[in-house]
Design a protein around this nucleic acid. Structure first.
Length: 487
DNA sequence: TTTTGAGTTGTTCGA
DNA sequence: GTCGAACAACTCAAA
């Protein structure tokens, strides 16, 4: 007797390899109905942003092609997930729905409801771990609490065996004779209507082949000098794997295994890189255990921090018009390519929350909308770290000096010149502090500060002191309040 | 329960 | 130019 079909619900696991839900469906030996349901309204306040949607469009096209090679046609649908799955089950006669877990608070809650509802319908509903090395709820301190500091978290997970990628069973790929029809990829309207993303395609290959190639390329070269080179935004020193991990075109177990297979895992550089996979795991650990953190500071004492919201300052930062070359280069790289170098992410974040006293949530929101690698766990952790209000936060006095950071990590100014063409004729000596250049140098470089390039939005020293004062006043207010409440 | 060691990515100042 | 210390106090996590 022919078995009823299995629905494989693809989400942020847009790959065939190392995909436990797909592997389990194959093992079942029944025809497979692969589906992607686009339901952004179910993602609460954190619906995919413009850059993520651009990536998603191409990732779906790539997945569709890969499935087609196996004789399966990916069903695309827009609308409510549960209704879509029910309809699909009825159309295809499926008796099971398999998927890989997601961990964003709104989606976790939705998926839990969907699982109950499908089971009440009499379907077999099963979820798997396809996105993480270690499930967040399986890791805890000796007291049973979640970790809030990276190093002990990392020690604890390193002591466990690293899970290997999930192999695809060697079985036949069965499809339905008459697979249900979905909509066209274009009908999901994932691509921007303006020409904003035109340059993305030059920078990225958002396909499954691109994912494999990026991993190989990194292990072939850049990983060797990783600890140092990764800090220089003008060089190709980082892995640039983040968008593949965010879309699930690569899983962390595949990356981990590839680092080992390349013999790099025992080197200092390899270890350093693997610890970045560890940071991603830590971010998910925090998101699952502290689900309010995408919007609210982890520590209550920062809940009423004296931010000074200012739409004009925020816009200048977003547009790369702050007058600090390394900041403006980073913000423009982000706008033009959907990505920003990690070192520069820290520098621009520090300026926004410290020098400009803008709420960290504004920065997180902008990154969310403009990054092709937007990931709620990593984005939340990173911004709270920068703002000093989250787990393992930077000490309050750690305020990045945008001039010094530029001089250290982009000494020739080549990164700045690439993204801020106004400064391309300025000598390296002044590239990170154009306002210090003598008048004749400025004239020769065609630079008129305040006219064709801004003056610094705030003087570094003044901004730093204002940030320290705000932190001081927040501390005082907390002490006063604690005193009052303890009496 | 108490104690102890430690904590991603920095900057500034003065010798 | 280079170097080391100071920058606060607090909380975490394990012993």
């Amino acid at each position: 007797m022919k078995k009823a079909a299995t629905i494989v619900w693809f989400r942020r696991d847009l790959r065939l390899q190392d995909n436990p839900a797909l592997a389990a469906a194959l093992e079942r030996g029944a025809p497979i109905v692969p589906v992607y349901l686009f339901s952004p309204e179910e993602e609460g306040d954190w619906q995919p942003g413009g850059a993520s949607r651009w990536w998603l469009h191409h990732a779906l096209a790539s997945l569709r092609d890969a499935l087609l090679e196996q004789g399966l046609s990916l069903v695309l649908q827009r609308g409510a997930s549960l209704a879509g799955l029910r309809k699909l089950a009825a159309q295809s006669g499926a008796d099971a729905v398999f998927w890989n877990r997601r961990y964003e608070p709104a989606i976790k809650a939705r998926d839990s409801d969907i699982k109950s509802a499908l089971r009440e319908d009499g379907l077999e509903a099963r979820s798997f771990n396809g996105s993480l090395m270690w499930e967040p709820h399986e890791i805890s301190t000796q007291n049973g609490d979640p970790y809030k500091v990276f190093t002990p978290f990392w020690k604890s997970v390193r002591a466990r065996p690293a899970p290997a990628p999930c192999p695809l069973p060697d079985t036949e790929w069965l499809g339905l004779d008459n697979p249900p029809a979905g909509c066209d990829l274009d009908a999901l309207a994932l691509l921007p209507t303006l020409d904003w993303a035109d340059d993305f395609a030059e920078r990225w290959t958002p396909t499954l082949e691109g994912a494999t190639a990026a991993l190989e390329e990194f292990l072939d070269g850049p990983i060797k000098g990783y600890p140092d080179r990764r800090n220089h935004p003008a060089r190709k020193g980082t892995s640039r794997l983040s968008p593949y991990l965010a879309s699930g075109q690569l899983g962390p177990r595949q990356v981990w295994a590839a680092v080992h297979a390349a013999g790099a895992a025992d080197s200092q550089a390899g270890y350093k890189f693997l610890s970045e996979i560890g940071w991603r795991e830590f971010a998910y650990h925090l998101l699952v255990h502290f689900p309010k953190t995408p919007d609210t500071a982890l520590y209550d004492k920062y809940a009423d921090f004296p931010w000074q919201p200012d739409a004009g300052q925020l816009r200048a930062w977003q547009r790369g018009q702050t007058g600090y070359p390394i900041i403006d280069a980073g913000m423009r790289e982000l706008w033009n390519t959907g990505w920003m170098h990690n070192r520069v992410r820290m520098i621009v974040a520090s300026l926004l929350v410290k020098h400009l006293l803008q709420p960290w949530q504004e920065g997180a929101r902008w990154f969310w909308d403009t990054l092709v690698d937007a990931d709620l766990a990593s984005n939340t952790m990173g911004w709270q770290w920068s703002a000093g209000c989250g787990a393992d936060a930077a000490p309050y006095f750690r305020i990045f000096n945008p001039i010094l950071q530029g001089e250290k990590f982009d000494p020739q100014g080549s990164y700045v010149k690439r993204w801020v063409p106004e400064l391309k004729d300025l000598p390296a000596k002044y590239i990170h502090s154009p306002w210090e250049a003598p008048a004749d140098v400025l004239h020769k470089a065609g630079l008129r500060l305040g006219d064709n390039y801004p003056q610094p939005i705030v003087e570094h020293k003044a901004g730093r002191e204002r940030a320290l004062a705000a932190l001081q006043s927040n501390k005082m207010r907390n002490e006063t309040r604690d005193k009052a409440s303890s009496q």
